[in-house]
């Protein structure tokens, strides 16, 4: 099916929702600040601090398990320094998105969704490191937000989504294909429709749009390939939305693997089996991270 048709359909489905969450006020002020050419890091940190929930999330996300070995980051300012100016925008948007969908359990609960998402973020970062992709933070954040369309569908189109999940239960059918069949579009297009409304930067929109079709990417195909592979690995190693779909793959046939090997030929030698076993060991860390991001933050 034509991608333009799918995107149009997705935009219609998003437009239909009148109470679509908007970016929380402090986050949008942060984004405004970031547009000022001479903004100081201090100013941004102070703004974030006016929202305690946002501040706590920023710190927790930056302190993901991968960083713990060095020094734990305890202040918003240090978190921003660590992350670098160029990533504050995505981080603010990601936090806003978490906030916007907090407690909005639909066809699946939001925690399971974020466990998969943060899992993909962390695995994307690991792959990025191994492939010597320059911006590992970008891989992490892009991994976290790649599936935002899913949480929208699960909540706003709960009944239909439930039906789809029921249909593919214990059959070897990919969720994305089932969505296409049912709606004529899928969570990638829904996700990008939302991301554009929220003004996510273009590379991130591309990851959301193409993470199931990495060969379509033009802005940063390597980033899309990294997130695609991270998604595949998480889907077979217990960060799989609680086993809602049955994913099976052979790396040799994956387009993302070809893209990545062209970019980083040494990846061809990756011990994939060991890589999987190491990921198994990381699952509890991912679950702890997600729990900590939501802990004490239940909305009154």
């Amino acid at each position: 099916m034509d991608t333009n048709v799918k995107l149009k359909k997705a935009q219609e489905m998003v437009e239909k929702i009148s109470d679509l969450p908007t970016i929380p006020i402090v986050a949008s002020k942060v984004l405004e600040l970031l547009d000022k050419p001479d903004v100081e890091l201090e100013e941004v940190a102070d703004m974030i601090l006016t929202d305690q929930v946002l501040a706590a999330r920023v710190i927790k996300i930056v302190n993901s398990p991968l960083y713990r070995s060095s020094q734990e980051i305890k202040s918003v300012k240090r978190a921003l320094v660590y992350l670098g100016f160029r990533h504050i925008r995505e981080l603010a948007l990601t936090c806003s998105f978490i906030e916007a969908f907090q407690g909005k359990d639909g066809a699946f609960d939001v925690m399971t969704f974020w466990e998969h998402s943060f899992g993909v973020g962390i695995v994307a970062k690991i792959i990025a490191q191994r492939a010597r992709y320059i911006d590992t933070e970008k891989a992490y954040l892009a991994g976290i937000i790649h599936d935002i369309g899913e949480v929208f569908l699960s909540y706003y189109y709960q009944k239909d989504f439930q039906r789809i999940l029921q249909e593919i239960k214990s059959t070897p059918y990919k969720l994305v294909d089932a969505e296409d069949r049912f709606w004529g579009t899928n969570h990638s297009y829904i996700g990008v429709a939302i991301a554009q409304k929220w003004n996510f930067p273009p590379e991130y929109c591309e990851v959301i749009a193409d993470h199931h079709e990495p060969e379509l990417a033009t802005i940063d195909p390597n980033l899309v390939a990294i997130v695609n592979l991270a998604d595949l690995f998480c889907s077979v190693r217990q960060l799989d939305y609680g086993g809602r779909e049955w994913v099976s793959f052979n790396l040799a046939e994956e387009k993302a693997w070809d893209i990545l090997k062209k970019f980083a030929p040494h990846m061809a030698k990756l011990d994939v089996e060991r890589f999987c076993y190491e990921l198994d060991d990381r699952v509890p860390e991912v679950q702890d991270l997600v729990k900590s991001i939501f802990e004490g933050m239940v909305m009154e």
Binding site: V236, L251, C276, Y277
Partner: peptide, 24 residues
């Protein structure tokens, strides 16, 4: 369950599925 054929045989392809893999 926790075994690996990495470096043992290049002819096999690894097929991943939830919770494991098999060779083909």
């Amino acid at each position: 369950q926790s075994e690996s054929l990495h470096g043992v045989n290049d002819s096999f392809k690894t097929i991943h599925f939830p919770g494991g893999f098999a060779y083909k």
